[in-house]
Design a protein around this nucleic acid. Structure first.
Lengths: 349, 349
DNA sequence: CCCGCATCTGACAACGTTGTCCAGGCTCTA
DNA sequence: TAGAGCCTGGACAACGTTGTCAGATGCGGG
């Protein structure tokens, strides 16, 4: 039978539940306040004997340094903030984790929040993080105007935008090559004989969505294919809308023979729709998807490296904090086309 | 001697980049410090005219309240910590998001960290969060001894463990019914005629892995099937090991005709292995997987509700903080068997 | 024995905010 | 018009930590 402890009655005091402070430790150890501070921070200039006494008092009282007070005094919080769209999205999980790892390597903690693609919430979150005095901010923008961050940046909050560019301010940005990736993906479909190609993407106000659409148009233009309005559908990525959009362009007299999907969520829904079709329709999706290789046919995708995006952004953030960086820069990471079958299906008219 | 030691001048750089404080705002608006505080916090007792003057000064200076100082004064940080295994794991993303939503509803921010399944790192993280004086802590344990949290809990840090129970301390726990879920999943395979059933799971020191194995054993025993040692494989869930384990139990004179996989990562790898087999092997996996319904055959799973786990835990955390709760409790959420085909394949000997 | 020097230690003042408390000035009533 | 009571505004002391600086202590050398 394992020994367990019982939760003792909690004191109602709002003072951190009456936690011991350095003062308490000092009193118990019979030393000065500053000496405790020195021991806690491993500063030199303390006799081994004194140090032992202090350490004993710390253990006996269950003391833990209050970093809030420390932060107040030192001016650095050793924490950075990440504002993203949705932590539950398989694209942002790895990105967040990558940022966390870099932060950890720099001894910083990561505070993150989901904007749920709501510009107002993004701002609210980012500013709340600034109020906590995070040293830096990694933002995946939901809105397109980030002037609200100007005072913060001027005040010294390192800031890097990822996945989408900042709006109306000059700041570091780390992006995937959305335009090029989409263009390549669509060109791939064209190369396999398709001419009527659909595009289903996220809301046009989202930069990545717009860029990918631009890539689609460019590829079509490169091939001299006039794009028809009904082949393109931009909007919310909930399954219902995407399904409707897909079914629409797959029906009628001249249905599309291939579809390019603008992100992972769209791709998943479209795969479901295509599975119900009698005809084989080619598909290339932006963003890689787990198990994409095991479907019949395998799903051809334009993959971006979410972890690399996060890592690059975070590293840049810390370089800003080091003072190594001066001028804002725009970094674009390449995408990679992964052929698995669905993108190589011939047109079936 | 003319030479004197010069004291280094105080560098202004470490003071949040010289941000304006309430004092600065007060000076500019020509009011007292506390009046600014009142305006910032929307407290009553300020003339509209004064309020306007203060607000103008705030905007002009780009003032933002320093929450670190606020926290120090008030004793509550309005933030909670989440220690989980890996944010990049599709199981923990939704869980984390659910915790965040509850926190948000209570006006709190979420700080999270990945333990990478390392008990030491878990402890380090949890204590770092306590040093930041988070109001509460949601922990997905990596280790099996959490006595290190005793002083913190006693000091008033609300604590809830999720997904796996706490080790050697008495605390709130929210779990899935791992035992029952696995038992049901394996029973499902048995009901479809299987007798030689393999089990591939995570490291046995992980509670969920052990419980699921226990469920497997129970189901086998219920059916009067003696379990052979070579049918069971527990260990790291990296693809290499899992693949080896699967291939081993699928070869030899009396290969298994069905496999029960202990979590999402294992399931994904085993799907790959099974796809390469000439025989059809039945499969039931613990944890649902995206696109599981679109594979051939669809993957039958025992699904747990990650979001519900997170939500339940977070709600309980805030009830602790409200003072509504007293005694630690163990909550178990049901799992759900989702038949999609792979679990209904007959044995192919 | 005392001085100089190095090493340790502790008193004290920040850091930026909020809670307490009191001083004026105002309105309202008797 | 005086007194009571309300509103508004500000002085001041925390909160728990760290940086500064000066005082204490010990040691060796003159």
């Amino acid at each position: 039978m394992p020994e367990t402890t019982r939760r003792t009655e909690r004191l109602p005091g709002n003072r951190y539940g009456n936690r011991p402070t350095m003062k308490d430790v000092a009193a118990r150890a019979g030393v000065g306040l500053k000496t405790v501070s020195r021991v806690v921070n491993g500063e030199p200039g303390v006799t081994p004997d004194t140090e032992r006494r202090v350490q004993e008092a710390i253990d006996a009282l269950g003391f833990r340094r209050n970093d809030s007070a420390r932060v107040l005094r030192k001016g650095r919080t050793a924490s950075i903030g990440l504002v993203l769209e949705d932590l539950a999205d398989p694209f942002y999980g790895p990105l967040s984790r990558a940022v966390e790892e870099v932060a950890r390597a720099h001894g910083a903690l990561l505070i993150n929040g989901s904007s749920a693609e709501d510009p107002e919430r993004e701002q609210e979150l980012a500013l709340a993080l600034c109020a906590r005095r995070v040293d830096g901010l990694v933002v995946i923008p939901a809105g397109d105007d980030h002037r609200y961050l100007e005072p913060e940046i001027r005040a010294g909050v390192a800031t890097v935008f990822v996945d989408r560019p900042a709006g109306r301010i000059d700041a570091d940005v780390v992006l995937s090559d959305n335009y090029g990736g989409a263009r390549g993906g669509v060109a791939h479909l064209i190369a396999h004989g398709h001419r009527r190609i659909g595009f289903i993407g996220d809301m046009p106000r989202i930069h990545t969505a717009a860029e990918r659409l631009r890539g689609y148009r460019a590829a079509m233009e490169d091939a001299g294919i006039p794009v028809e309005e009904r082949w393109m559908s931009l909007g919310a990525t909930n399954p219902e809308r995407v399904r409707r959009a897909a079914e629409e362009m797959l029906s009628g007299p001249d249905p599309v023979t291939a579809v390019f999907t603008g992100n992972n969520r769209v791709t998943v829904t479209v795969i479901r729709v295509l599975a119900e079709q009698s005809r084989r329709v080619a598909l290339v999706g932006f963003d890689d998807i787990e198990l994409a290789d095991l479907l019949q046919p395998g799903v051809t995708v334009v993959a971006q490296d979410a972890a690399a995006l996060g890592r690059t952004a975070a590293e840049r953030l810390f370089r800003q904090l080091d003072g190594t960086l001066v001028a804002p820069e725009r970094i674009e990471l390449p995408t990679r086309l992964i052929s698995r079958g669905s993108g190589e299906l011939p047109p079936a008219d």
